[in-house]
Amino acid sequence: MSNFAENVANKILEALSKFYENNKRIKIISAHISGISYENIGDSGLSFLNDIARDGKFSVYTTVNPMGADIYDNVFNLNEKFIVKQKKIAEIYLRMGAVESFTCTPYDYFSLPKRGSHVAWAESSAVVYGNSFLKLFTNKESALSALASSILGETIYSDLHIKENRKITLAFKYKDRINELILGLLIYHIGKKVEKPFTIKLYKELSSLEKKALAAALGTVSNVSLFSTSIKGKEVKEIFEIFKNDLRKEYEELNTCEKGEVIILGCPHLNHAEISNFLRRMDGRHFKKDCIIACCREAYKNIIKLYDQSLLSKKRIFFFQNACPIFSPLLKVMGVKNIITNSVKAAHYYKYRGIGVNLKKLEDIIETESE
């Protein structure tokens, strides 16, 4: 006999099956749940989760998205009532069986499904990254459908779970020099135009930071959740070349101010290798304004084994652990109106939250904002 949580989960998937006009379900081996910030779900969401958690348990390996506050170290003096509510949300997910992950990059530190596995992931950039670089099979789930799938261990057999829908027949090529910002703008530009999976021919090996930039920007602007960086073996019928000047419109759209009061890095979350590389590039310099790095707690633990935290604070480098600055009261508490970032995804969301964005590549942030 099914319990309350299973009944609710089944109703969610039944509604989804009507949308897809497909009743068939497929077993999954992992889920990733989004929308856990108290900033997003509020008291009504917390109440709903309390009801689900009365008898609900996750039946598959489940990770969860970042919170709206760093509940481990309240460096920025966020409201204690907010933190208490955020802790309650986190505790509910852990009680239901989630891994203590709280990151938008579940592929960095946590158990990775095998290539070709069917999963139900909800975070837009993780979905694109999983499909495109890890060769997983997942649709862009909503917070509710991912929650339902994590309880039932299955999702609707539709869209990118079906091999036929993953065929790539459209390609783009870009020959100019690239960095994480150019790549974000490039796929943001493409994402506005396409309605099916595609490939981008690039002329260099991509770093993990660059892969994340691609996945995040596409997930932000498009419903397409799969692309490739290789034309070889694809049934490509059309190839379009894109030039650097073609990206000017996207840059002007997202770069809404010429300076910011604080630097925000880690959208998506940075891992400790990426943070270490960034700190090496600082080469003894220190920032002229606060630099906040969003990362999961595992990354932070690794970093403070390598670097003295007090010295990093003197460089005005701070961490926002297991949390996302975008869906958080952080900037409001700090009184910040304009930020500096290298993330196209962050720029997109901050713009629509009324925050000014000075968008530039990481190299330029180090050069212009530190001494």
Rank of each mutant, 00 (worst) to 15 (best):
M1C: 02
A5S: 04
N10W: 09
K11T: 00
K11W: 00
I12H: 03
S17F: 11
K18H: 02
Y20P: 05
N22S: 15
N23E: 06
I26V: 14
S34A: 11
G35R: 08
G35M: 06
I41Q: 04
G45T: 12
F48H: 07
F48W: 12
I52S: 02
R54M: 09
D55G: 06
F58A: 01
Y61H: 11
Y61L: 03
Y61M: 08
T62H: 04
T63I: 04
N65F: 00
N65V: 03
N65G: 01
P66H: 04
D70I: 07
I71F: 03
Y72E: 08
N74K: 09
N79Q: 11
N79D: 14
K81T: 15
K87I: 08
R95P: 04
V99E: 10
Y109P: 09
S111Q: 15
P113C: 12
R115N: 06
A120Y: 04
A122P: 15
E123H: 10
E123S: 10
S125E: 03
A126L: 03
A126Q: 00
V127N: 00
V127P: 01
G130N: 10
S132L: 09
L136H: 07
F137V: 04
N139L: 10
S145C: 02
L147F: 03
L147Q: 07
A148E: 04
G153P: 00
E154Q: 07
I156H: 04
S158C: 07
D159V: 14
N165G: 05
I168T: 10
T169L: 11
L170C: 12
A171C: 04
Y174T: 11
D176A: 13
R177K: 08
R177W: 00
I178F: 06
N179G: 03
G184R: 09
L185G: 06
K193E: 13
V194M: 11
E195G: 15
P197M: 08
K201C: 05
K201V: 02
Y203W: 07
K204T: 12
L209Y: 09
L209V: 14
E210A: 02
A217Y: 06
L218C: 08
G219L: 13
T220K: 14
T220Q: 03
S222M: 01
V224N: 00
S225G: 12
L226V: 11
S228F: 06
E235T: 13
K237A: 00
K237L: 04
I239L: 13
F240Y: 14
E241F: 12
I242Q: 09
K244R: 15
R248T: 14
E250Q: 10
T256V: 05
N271Y: 12
E274D: 09
S276A: 13
F278W: 06
F278N: 06
L279P: 11
F287I: 08
K288V: 12
K288L: 06
I292P: 02
I293S: 07
A294R: 15
C296L: 14
A299I: 15
K305D: 01
K305P: 02
L306V: 07
Y307N: 08
D308G: 12
D308H: 10
K315P: 01
I317R: 13
Q321G: 07
P325V: 13
L331S: 10
K332T: 05
G335L: 13
K337G: 05
K337V: 03
K337E: 06
N338G: 07
N342R: 15
N342S: 15
A346H: 05
H348G: 11
K351S: 09
G354P: 13
V357E: 02
N358F: 07
